[in-house]
Amino acid sequence: MSSFPAVLNSEWTKIRTVASTTWTLVAALVVTVGISAGLCTLFNSTFTEMPKEQQLTFDPTLASFVGMSLGQLAMIIFGVLVVGTEYSTGMIRTSLAAVPRRGELFLGKLTVATVLALVVGLATSFLSFFLGQAILGEHSTGIDEPGVLRAVFGAGLYMALIALFSMGVAAMLRSSVLAICILIPFFLLISNILNGVSATRKVAQYLPDQAGSRIMQVVPGAMDSGETPYGPWGGLGIMVLWVLASVLGGYLVLKKRDA
C-alpha cells in the first residue's frame, strides 16, 4: 500500500501549485471581511433609525458575518475546482494511475483541501469578527461573551464545510462547470428565497447553508431569522449530514464509474 502521507503530500503539491487556489481563498476572505465591515459601518450609523425590536435583537456577532453569504461563493468555487479540474483536464486518469485505490486518493484530496479551507475559514471568521466589532463600537460584543466564541469558531467551520460539500458535489457531477452552475444559484438565490417565504421556510431551514449558519448566531431570532427547531450545534449537525451525504455520493461515483 502506498502510504497515505505520501498521498497527502502529493495533494498538497497539487493544491498549492495552481492559481485558482490562491484567488478563490483570497476572495473568500476579502469578500467576507470587506462586505461584513461595510455593513457593520452601515448598521452602526443607522442603529438608532432601526425599529425597536430590531435594536433589541441586534446580534453584533452575526452582523460581523453578513458578508459570508457572498464570501462563501468563493469557497464553493474553491471546493468545486479542487475536484472538478481533475476531470476537466483529464488529470484524473494520471492521478488514479499513480494512486489506484480511489478511496485513498479521494480522502487525501478532501483532507488537504478541507484543512486548507478550515484555516482560511477561521482566519476569515476571526478577522471579520474583530473588524466588525471594532466598527460597531458601542453596539459591539466581546469574544468572551456567552456563545460568541462558539459563533466565531463555528463561522470558520461553516466555511470549511461548505467547501467540502462542494467537493462532494463536484465529484458526483464530475464537472466543474456543472457543479458551479448548480451550486452558485442554489446558495446565492434559491436557498434564501425558499427560506424567505414563510410557506417553504419549514423545509428550507433544513438546507445545508440555512441550518449551518445557525452556528454564527448568538441572539435567537436575530435579523428576522425566525425560530428554528434546532440550536446552533444542531444546525451545524444537519449541515454535517448534508456534507457526509455529498462526500459519500462523490466517493461512490468515483469508485464505481470508469475514469
Binding site: S2, S3, A6, V7, N9, S10, E11, T13, K14, T17, V18, A19, S20, T85, E86, T89, G90, M91, I92, R93, T94, S95, A97, A98, V99
Partner: peptide, 27 residues
C-alpha cells in the same frame, strides 16, 4: 509507467509541478 493521453495533466501547473505531485504520491 503509462502514457495514455498526453493532455492528462493540469494545464495551469508547470511541467515540473505536474511531475512533482506524481512523484510524491509514489514516494
Amino acid at each position: 509507467g503509462a502514457l495514455l493521453d498526453a493532455k492528462a495533466m493540469h494545464g495551469g501547473r508547470s511541467a515540473y509541478n505536474n511531475l512533482l505531485c506524481l512523484a510524491q504520491s509514489n514516494r
